[in-house]
Structures are given as structure tokens and as C-alpha cells.
């Protein structure tokens, strides 16, 4: 049986509620545009800043806007031991693109991973992880972004 922890991305990028959106955007760019988890100082999950939430502020002063104003509050608790079907049902129902996985043992809602809808597509395609990893990591022949 496939579990959530087998598919999730263990690399969680996080920021604090007081960080400016400018820093969040920079972080996203440095991490392949993955979502940024907003955590409280105690390490507890507060919310998530997705790409769609950030572009709302296009052309505005990012320095003055804080991550707290942009984030979507996040209250769902997903256990890493859940079967993957349960997580997919939750994604379908909530229409969330990303689920934050919290550690069930280490105190209050500490994030340990992110499950993205693309991870599920990977699972559905039946292509083994690692098989195409080399191809994907090759430098792009034509850089896609133009100035």
C-alpha cells in the first residue's frame, strides 16, 4: 500500500508571518516555485503561500506586504501514515493543490513534508522515481524565460 510519506516532498520551505512578500517571492524563485509554508515561531503550521496568492500583488509594494496578509490559513492535519487514497480524496474535496504533512509525534503541528498534486500525477503515470531523474536534471537547451 502506498502511503503519503512515500510520495511527499520532505523539503519544506518555510517563512514567518512577519516576513515580507518580497522575501517569500525570492524564496519561491530559489526553490523551483514551490509553495512556502508559514510557521509560527513555535514551529506550528499557520498557513501556506501559494503562487496564485502571490501574483495577486503583482506591481504592488512587496516590501510592505507581509506573508500573513497573503497566506491562506491552513488547519487540516494530514498524517504521514495515511494511505494515498485518503489524501487524494481530501485534495479533491478541498480543491487544494498542496497538502502539508504534519508530524504526529513532535508536538504541535510541525511540518515535515508537502504533498503536491504533481506527486500524485507521478504516481498515476507509473513511472518509477529516479528513472527520469537524470533527464529532468539536464540543463535546459533553451532558457525559457526572456528578459
Amino acid at each position: 500500500m502506498m502511503r503519503v510519506c512515500d510520495l511527499m516532498d520532505r523539503d519544506v520551505i518555510f517563512c514567518y508571518p512577519d516576513d515580507s512578500v518580497k522575501d517569500v517571492v525570492r524564496m519561491m524563485k530559489a526553490n523551483q516555485f514551490r509553495p512556502v509554508v508559514v510557521v509560527h515561531e513555535s514551529g506550528e503550521v499557520w498557513g501556506i503561500v501559494t503562487r496564485l496568492a502571490v501574483i495577486r500583488f503583482y506591481g504592488e509594494d512587496l516590501e510592505q506586504t507581509r506573508a500573513e496578509d497573503v497566506m491562506r490559513p491552513y488547519r487540516i492535519e494530514v498524517d504521514p501514515q495515511w494511505p494515498i487514497e485518503k489524501a487524494i480524496e481530501l485534495m479533491k474535496r478541498t480543491k487544494y493543490e498542496h497538502l502539508i504533512i504534519v508530524d504526529p509525534h513532535a508536538g504541535p503541528r510541525r511540518p515535515i513534508g508537502i504533498l503536491c498534486s504533481f506527486d500524485i500525477v507521478h504516481y498515476m503515470s507509473g513511472i518509477e522515481t529516479g528513472h527520469y531523474e537524470q533527464i529532468l536534471k539536464m540543463p535546459q537547451a533553451w532558457p525559457t524565460s526572456s528578459p
Binding site: M28, K29, F33, R51, I55, L62
Partner: peptide, 14 residues
């Protein structure tokens, strides 16, 4: 793509 817009925002800030 949404990534290109975020990328643009990051570059504008830099």
C-alpha cells in the same frame, strides 16, 4: 504560466 509571473516579480524586486 504562474511561475513566469512570480519570476518576473522576483526580478523586478532585485
Amino acid at each position: 504560466h504562474v511561475e513566469d509571473i512570480v519570476d518576473r516579480m522576483a526580478r523586478d524586486e532585485e
